[in-house]
């Protein structure tokens, strides 16, 4: 997977592997947000990271692993005072994010689903998918 220099982690990543359920996905979220708070990110940035992480975990559990609790979601992350890097990988076949319809387009605005990826892109500083489409890398730069 090619990454731009802004996304390439320059600090060691911590790794957590959880079973593919939404309740299990809360554990890495708590760990990451605890670090984010400790590093002094703003309330807006904490909200953005929480929202993006939840959307990425939901996509991994529901769409990637298709709610198969025997599968796993792998989360790697690093939180520094400068930026937060989160990588979420599922065991699914992957997908092409460019083929996901724009949920803000007039013809899609009434769809009940399909807003997760655009929210991640809107709230994080950098977002990138692996070539296989089953891994997302998200970066939030601390603007403080």
């Amino acid at each position: 997977m090619s990454r731009s220099s802004s996304i390439e982690p320059d600090v060691p990543l911590q790794e957590m592997v959880v079973e593919s359920t939404l309740s299990a996905a809360k554990k890495p979220e708590a760990a990451i947000l605890s670090e984010v708070e400790r590093c002094g990110y703003s309330e807006d940035d904490i909200f953005a990271i929480k929202l993006s992480l939840e959307e990425a975990m939901t996509n991994a559990v529901r769409h990637g692993n298709r709610c198969d609790a025997s599968k796993h979601v792998t989360i790697r992350y690093a939180v520094t005072p400068e930026r937060t890097i989160i990588i979420v990988r599922d065991e699914g076949p992957g997908f092409c994010p460019d083929r996901v319809p724009d949920p803000t387009a007039p013809e899609n605005i009434e769809r009940p689903s399909g807003r997760g990826i655009m929210l991640i892109r809107a709230y994080m500083t950098h977002v990138e998918y692996s070539a296989t489409g089953n891994e997302i890398t998200m970066v939030k730069v601390n603007e403080r």
Partner: peptide, 16 residues
Amino acid sequence: EFIDSNGLGGLVAAYL
């Protein structure tokens, strides 16, 4: 305090 895309979808479904 917080809502994800699934919660937003619930608002849309009820609106429709």
